[in-house]
Write a protein that binds this DNA or RNA. Structure first.
Lengths: 241, 241
DNA sequence: ATTTTTTGTGTAAATATTACACATATTTTT
DNA sequence: AAAAATATGTGTAATATTTACACAAAAAAT
């Protein structure tokens, strides 16, 4: 364990943390992973104990290769979720001089998109919980603000990035895909126009499951055609609505 | 002056800097403001002395309200340019563990857009120089990479933000505006289509300077109609090409 | 003086977007 | 068990947007 007062500098240094906004989608609603704050860094005073907050923690100055590695490591430690470094997309920094009561702390926030069904089992329910976007509690520090900024970044990115790929399960339906877009963009689309446009892009593969499918109201299942998407993206394609 | 070893922490802390990419436009070419590195922080070892670099410097932990204030202060100190805090748009952080040979330094980068003609005089030519985008020298640290990322962010933002307002002088011509868009987006547009689209948005006011203007090849002068632009933007307008 | 470059302007064709209705199986309600 | 409500898939015509394209005149360069 580190001895107190071991690290000295000629000029004052801030602490740096990485917080993560992890979005999931269960086919119905957009969700966010939050943790209940306990104590951290054994010896330091705990701030906002017992409140909900974004998962995150301090940069390990000697070990973390980049700040994304901090985000990765802390998310795993705090929620059990083991993603990949490249899943973390930087949102920005939050550096207000009073944002942490203990000392000057700059946080760099990332967001990540996960397939909820696939990861729900591996999140440590003791410490972490998935909250519906519509039902987020008040958060510690300036995490309310951070969450809003992360969401607006997601909202921007969805125009150009295949966020569907990352949030939906392998097999999904058009209504699910549409609902996801509507949840993130906070608008409603016409069902026919949405389907036409999506099919026109050629990035959906219909799954033939044998059932002859005479009636409706059992939605057709699709898979993303990743190869086609990558090809389109390479030639300047933009997924827009 | 600070005494050596005055600031101690229980855990190691990184240094945090703010670097700025300042873009200017002279009616012909996109330019970037760079500084020649000398020594900084009186007592510390100077890295990359004599090389070109982005303007920037260390966060003042006790005084800088946010990291944007650091960017503002350092830009003024190093180049003489006095912008406004809200001119600084965050690009992102660069945190590679080896990016600074002296100690662990995380940098948070902003970009800013300026009307070159108006600020050229106030940049301290002793220390700072405007470089054409096509003619940027090799830079210190990972500043080459930072510059590329900042440019690609500008390229994205131009779709949705009135960067023309910020880079062009009050009075400008359509060819200048088009050239600016072409420089940033790295494409060529058809002159008629560009003019049609721009005029259709209703954000340009033609300036009547009395001259009857029988001939062509003396471009018509315009001003941005800021009010109209703001109104359009408020109702979801997007400037696209 | 001649040539080259720069500028402004309009229209037709192609493409993309929008608006819109019904039949039917499933689910929910009574 | 029956009835009502809900969710699903499908196509076309009207409108709006985007693209492609040529010439005449002044200024600048040769």
């Amino acid at each position: 364990m580190a001895k107190k007062g071991q690290y000295t500098y000629e000029y004052p240094h801030p602490a740096v943390t990485a917080d993560s906004v992890v979005f999931g989608y269960d086919g119905k609603e957009l969700k966010v992973l939050l943790i209940k704050r306990g104590k951290e860094r054994e010896a330091s005073t705990t701030a906002y104990a017992g409140e909900w907050a974004l998962p995150g923690g301090f940069l390990d100055v000697e070990k973390d290769k980049t700040i994304a590695h901090t985000a990765f490591r802390e998310l795993k430690e705090e929620t059990g979720l083991k993603l990949s470094i490249k899943d973390f997309k930087e949102v920005g920094s939050f550096s207000d001089i009073r944002r942490d009561p203990r000392e000057r702390v700059i946080t760099i926030t990332h967001y990540a998109l996960v397939k909820l069904a696939e990861v729900e089992a591996s999140t440590d329910a003791e410490k972490a919980e998935w909250f519906s976007w519509a039902d987020i509690p008040h958060l510690a520090f300036d995490h309310d603000k951070i969450l809003r900024v992360a969401f607006s970044r997601l909202k921007q990115d969805i125009h150009f990035e295949p966020v569907g790929f990352e949030l939906l399960p392998e097999v999904f339906t058009l209504p699910q895909l549409q609902n996801l877009y509507e949840s993130i963009l906070e608008v409603k689309f016409d069902r026919r126009n949405f389907a036409n446009k999506m099919k026109h892009y050629g990035i959906l593969s219909e799954i033939e499951d044998g059932t002859p499918r005479h009636g409706t109201r059992t939605p057709v299942k699709y898979r993303f055609d990743k190869e086609n998407y990558d090809r389109l993206k390479g030639s300047g394609f933009q997924l827009e609505f």
